[in-house]
Design a binder for these strands. Structure first.
Lengths: 223, 223
DNA sequence: CTGCCAGGATTGCAACAGCATTACGGGGAT
DNA sequence: ATCCCCGTAATGCTGTTGCAATCCTGGCAG
């Protein structure tokens, strides 16, 4: 783990560095905001410890600067000013945590650990076939850059087909995907949906087509 | 935004819920850990506010239980015990933040905002659709350069739609975004909000419209 | 090669679930 | 006292969907 400590009091900085080092944490140290910005752009840190009072300005102003530069490393603000409203200000400027001096090294460590534990954002995965982008999580379909609004049942059919991209989907599987066990169908309703879906895909110039395997099922594939 | 508050003092809980509600946050309330666990497994919260002293046990023990159940919702611990070492203990058990009572609502809000800021990129802090600028953190909506004051529930609807800009939001998801589980609606209240919101957006010449996908949900789209 | 047929495709239609809108009134906030 | 939010319900509307009638097609048997 690697931290950037931005702190102008050398004595405190050294003590912190030493303590962190004993925990197996590597600490880079900047004495002012100018140096700090340079360091953050050249390196990647797991977290940044930021003092508010610094020779070249108020520490908090550093956070928006960082963010604008596309750096989203978590920031913990260290400060003597520990009034509630000050904390609000700090947090709203983009700090991830706020720690009033004096503090125990253990608490700092615990807060760093808490920050690092936060899960990274999980990517939403979208299925791509032809010019279609299908986002099953958000029930969203795009044909190229144009959104494709599908009625409920057609959407279900398309999703079921897309999930097994290119592979044949049994007719019965499709039926299960579109109808729950309470809903009985006694007609070719499914065929009707397929037909209507085909038309819509063609109209949208989706670049895919629904192919039938006689007696087995359907599959979705690029044209 | 939707929170779970785990707190046995009804009075405090009600006060908090009211305050949060005024900030556009929907709060579910559990009086004990048992209820809380059930709720967390049934719903998805943006964050959990957890008291330490609870009728059926120490609140902190709840966190590992949650994590084992695969729930990684951020937890903010609220407590009278605010000694540094106690805080360390809480954070190491998996809490994401720690707030000593008494606290200002503002600070709680700031800490919640800090937590929620993580997953979406910082760029997305203010959402833009058409001529609308929506700042979900500060609950502020602008149509062009004119501020648009929306009633609470309509704001919640708009926010929920905007967060998934352009993508379909399930009806049920919208309901969860606007109502907590205690508030049962047995009418088309949601439809009514949508209708009224539509009118306001049109009057404000917002350049966006709410589109319905029959049987699925709604989405927000530029005109 | 031809005819037959089961399975598939298409499409009009009517029913209905789902949606939109609006008026009303209770209740909370100012 | 006033205003506005918000839930409710009545009313009218609309697109989806199940169905069925009809047409099409591929595969197989003779």
């Amino acid at each position: 783990m690697r931290l950037l400590l931005i702190e102008d009091e050398r004595e405190l900085a050294n003590a912190l560095s030493a303590a962190l080092s004993r925990q197996g944490i590597v600490t880079d140290h900047a004495l002012n905001l100018g140096d700090a910005l340079e360091l953050t752009l050249q390196n990647t840190y797991d977290a940044i410890l930021l003092d508010r009072r610094l020779p070249d300005g108020e520490g908090l102003t550093f956070i928006p600067k960082l963010r604008r530069a596309g750096v989203d490393t978590p920031v913990i603000v260290l400060t003597a000013r520990n009034e509630p409203m000050e904390r609000v200000e700090g947090l709203d400027l983009g700090a991830d945590d706020y720690l009033g001096k004096p503090f125990l090294i253990e608490e700092l460590m615990a807060r760093v650990r808490a920050l690092l534990r936060r899960p990274p954002t999980l990517e939403e995965q979208t299925i791509r076939v032809g010019r279609l982008h299908i986002d099953p999580l958000h029930l969203h379909v795009m044909a190229g850059s144009v959104p494709l609004d599908l009625p409920r049942r057609e959407l279900l059919v398309l999703q079921a087909l897309a999930k097994r991209n290119g592979k044949t989907v049994l007719r019965s599987t499709l039926e299960d995907a579109v109808y729950n066990y309470q809903e009985e169908i006694q007609s070719n309703a499914l065929d009707a949906h397929i037909s209507r879906l085909r038309k819509r895909l063609a109209d949208a110039n989706a670049g895919v087509s629904i192919h039938n395997i006689r007696g087995v099922g359907y599959l979705l594939r690029e044209e």
